[in-house]
């Protein structure tokens, strides 16, 4: 299996993701090719918790222009992982 750190790239630290913490939901940017099962395994292994369910979404990159040349920021996959009650992740290591 892949290294869990190659699947979970970084946590999402925003106002929205912070409010989701109340519902025991943790948000990560994950590898674009990772599937829900891989994400579940990665989270369980890395943080030693039980995962209830995983929702994923593809976030399309934004179109940007540099000196009027069109460009695009990369697509990403975001995963919202719901843990089983009683499980917690201490994930604020900064990035």
């Amino acid at each position: 299996m892949k290294n869990p750190r190659d699947i979970l790239l970084k946590p999402v630290v925003t106002e929205k993701s912070m409010s989701l913490l109340q519902e025991n939901k943790y948000t990560f940017i994950v590898d674009l090719k990772a599937n829900k099962i891989e994400i579940r395994q990665a989270v369980e292994e890395l943080f030693n918790v039980k995962v209830d369910k995983v929702r994923t979404m593809r976030v399309k990159g934004k179109f940007k222009r540099v000196r009027n040349r069109p460009g695009k920021t990369p697509d990403r996959k975001k995963a919202i992982v719901t843990l089983k009650p009683g499980n917690k992740i201490q994930l604020f290591e900064g990035v």
Binding site: V12, V13, T14, E15, S17, M18, F92, G94
Partner: peptide, 16 residues
């Protein structure tokens, strides 16, 4: 702080 509106950052994130 990126990802937050002004004044809405939780204390922990803010301290980091």
């Amino acid at each position: 702080i990126p990802g937050f509106r002004k004044g809405k950052t939780p204390r922990v994130v803010f301290e980091n």
